[in-house]
Nucleic acid binder design. Structure first.
Lengths: 197, 197
DNA sequence: GTCTATACGGCGATAGAC
DNA sequence: GTCTATCGCCGTATAGAC
């Protein structure tokens, strides 16, 4: 692998765990296995490494969401639940990657805030659109209540997802799966078309 | 007000917005209106200021949750919703204070992690207990489904709350209130005792 | 491209006068 | 308790040899 790529990967890991300020050029260099000044042969400065990581994460995030929803399923509920659980388990298995995305969105280094929102807005909107379409399909199939606005459903969906995401460091894998299932049950009961109509 | 108290207040604001690493002793001193070395007459070092802020925030958090649930209400749903909305609006009005709590829990400075979890665990557990009791009462009054475990309900409740909390910087006050109401409607529908039984 | 050496600034923290 | 002066360290970043 090219050094430039290695630097990006080291950046993903370190920025995710330590945050922007606590990640130093020395630590990145050490992880790559080169000396600090060599980094500057590939990236202009620390910000440029960081933004390269951000762009990569945005692409991955959209692709992951689309792939989760594209899996075959018998019902729309099953499709949505599989995507939900996929997402939660992805938090767990690929912890650093997802910590990064949440962390930079919530607490961006103040001097990069503007640049960051520009980079992440687009992917956020694409993910929202993908999810809203999935809910629309579930409404058409008669599984989800037609009276609900899909934007509200998607908003609630992501609140739950992020809320669970905030807890992954506190639980074991089996507990997380259990929690996700319990949360989903309440959520689904809250949006499904009631049988008595 | 005593200087020691002023330093703590400056710390709340700066640590919340900038995080631990990006908040420097110089910035704290500047906000207080004294020179950097004077800080050391009141606190041993930066960590001690930070932990003083943490302890204060923990106390406030428990008190706030208890006070929200203690408000008079005609039904348990109303009581729970008022507490939910209170919490969300508190995120908005007292943004820095709540950013602090979420931020340090999610992304603690690694060298203080152990100390921090010890300090926050107690208040977390107390808040959980308070909420679980509230759900138990709502089950006894026949408003919430008895088949649900109150721990799962509370877990879902906090996922939603934190999820909304993550969005407060993105919306206006009216949008936030609207979102909170929409999220609550789905949640309540997911946990309420169904009428057809 | 990678290295050694180094510049310069800001950090947390201390010494000691007032 | 607050100040000025200063320490040692580590941060980002650059110069220039190989």
């Amino acid at each position: 692998m090219h050094t430039k790529e290695k630097i990006k990967l080291a950046g993903i890991e370190l920025f995710s765990i330590l945050g922007y300020e606590a990640t130093s050029m020395s630590k990145i260099a050490e992880k790559v296995g080169i000396k600090k000044p060599s980094l500057y042969a590939h990236y202009k400065n620390k910000e440029e490494i960081f933004m390269a990581v951000v762009d990569q994460m945005c692409v991955d995030y959209v692709e992951f969401t689309e792939a989760s929803l594209a899996k075959s399923a018998d019902t729309e509920e099953e499709r949505l639940f599989v995507a939900f659980l996929d997402h939660v388990l992805h938090f767990y298995s690929d912890e650093t990657e997802n910590q990064f995305y949440n962390r930079i969105l919530l607490y961006p280094p103040s001097e990069l805030e503007e640049q960051l929102t520009k980079a992440t807005n687009e992917s956020q909107e694409r993910v929202n659109a993908v999810m809203e379409n999935a809910i629309k399909r579930a409404k058409m199939s008669g599984e989800v209540d037609n009276d609900l606005d899909e934007r509200d459903v998607v908003f609630t969906y992501f609140c739950l997802l992020e809320g669970i995401g905030n807890t992954i460091t506190l639980y074991s894998l089996t507990d997380i799966e259990r929690n996700a299932k319990k949360v989903w049950d309440i959520f689904w009961r809250g949006i499904k078309k009631s049988e008595s109509r």
